[in-house]
Design a protein around this nucleic acid. Sequence first.
DNA 1: ATATATACGAGTTTTTTTATCGCATTTAAA
DNA 2: TTTAAATGCGATAAAAAAACTCGTATATAT
Lengths: 131, 131
Amino acid sequence: MFKLSKKVEYALISISHIKSSNTDKPISVRQISDKYNIPNELLAKILQTLSKVQILDSIKGPKGGYRLKSSLKDLSFVEFIEILEGPFGIADCMVDTDCSQLLNCNIINPMDKINSKIYKVFSDIKLKQLT
Amino acid sequence: MFKLSKKVEYALISISHIKSSNTDKPISVRQISDKYNIPNELLAKILQTLSKVQILDSIKGPKGGYRLKSSLKDLSFVEFIEILEGPFGIADCMVDTDCSQLLNCNIINPMDKINSKIYKVFSDIKLKQLT
DNA sequence: ATATATACGAGTTTTTTTATCGCATTTAAA
DNA sequence: TTTAAATGCGATAAAAAAACTCGTATATAT
């Protein structure tokens, strides 16, 4: 409960690694998955996603891999999470609208407040701070 | 990802319901599970837990049920969550100590900071505010 | 040409969460 | 004093979500 997913963890590790490698050469999935003990195929998928949303640049072929997108805008951590996991919310009813409790729900208000607080924490954190 | 568990939701609904019922008569699991569409047996378990940790008083037998413990101390929301779900942390490595990434982990520091922030949000919220 | 990369959809396995079952105990009330 | 309505509790099952794998296609440096 209330855990960050491996997807998010692996993505942060990768971006952090690429950033700190200080080279112009693309970094391959293999390099990262080996070093940090991350399943190769799974990481590949994640980096593909990051490439699609313009966080990484991908280079195909031998000596290929990923580079940080130079134009990388200042993403918030929520935006980052939502790229990988979809809409953010601490309960389904914050995202969907159908809930078998909804009619009688007596905790919607406090839940909504908590949700906003957590959302704000994650909005105030920027991806650049994390990596 | 990052969802509150049903356990926690059901527990909050129940406490809120009992509190707002303004009666001295015990409220049965059935009353609550019927009104809020919660599986009876599951809710029973949860209220048993709350009774064991002195949040609720249980009254057995017909006309039995649960009452708010009059001596209910001012629990924080994290404490409440930890009663139902065990130790709180946004990643396993915040709770356990074994992680196949640990040796090389390049995101422990930022993760730790995020964890503290979320923990603080949940510490600052009190159960009484929620119900 | 060949080997080394990414691209991507589909599928599988594992883990976690949610829910159920069965039996025991307590007790109010008929 | 029997019955029915309630909690107590361990074990198990079902469902959902998360984590991971596979197959095949495409691109490209050497």
